[in-house]
Amino acid sequence: MPWIDRMRGLPLGRIVPTTLIAAFSLLWIFPPLLTLATAFKSDAEVLANPFGLPAVPTLDAFRYAWQAMDYAGLFFNSFLYSAAGSAFAVVLALPAAYAFSWFRIPGRVLLFVMLLTTLMLPQQTVILPLFSLLRTLGLLDTRFGLILVHAAFGMPFLLLVMTGFVSGIPREVADAARIDGCSDFGIFRYIIVPLTMPAIAVGFTINFINIWKEYFFALILLSSQDAMPINVGILGVTNDFFFTSLNLPSAAIVLAQLPLILLYVFANRWIRQGMFAGAIKS
């Protein structure tokens, strides 16, 4: 960049680009911050002071949104789908990661690529058969059916993350155990699983977030209100009543986002690295 070049050595050389980038990043942080601020305002204050921080912060909008939209139920469902879906996916993916990285199974690259196609597959290409399959099995519009689907579609991402990790474990670690007569399962149980724990944690967390953010499957494979995750249930705010005020939908958005924001704040580095590794999923 020539303009940077010219300023090299000047004290301004850092201040100007930093200010520019800061101004640009404002575009990214302003909408979420605005939503957060609006959620803490009363109806009257939103009108009087749309941009500033809330003068008299109130939790009324949160309280109202929580009750009117049955957020307790929506949260329960979202937690259930995210946690159970990811847990099932881990259980499916971990032995597979072990098998694919430690054993020269004939045709393994082909099989591995096949499993990974799920990652890049638009959901629209499988939704009609899935809909029909789940209906035949009596699993359409059931929590268990959606968990199964999330497990199946989350498995390849975990497989990718954990295969990279498991193949990095030195084989010598297992040799001693094998001499002691340990079986494949023993090695998996006593060596692979404990050593892979960090990867399991990262993979589980990211998969948890992915399922929390997921919309298409939940929208189509569920129709009962009491089974909806928050990402579909939150659309209740778009009715006339909610959308004529700004603070109620803002509060609903903040609440729906809270678990993810918390995860992001407390496991920031972790998540970014993991998401980066598996960005294909998104």
Partner: peptide, 18 residues
Amino acid sequence: GVPDEAYKTKIFTVLRAP
């Protein structure tokens, strides 16, 4: 009772289900 927006998909679900 099934809310208006969900009713159509629900019908698709239940009529062919057990």
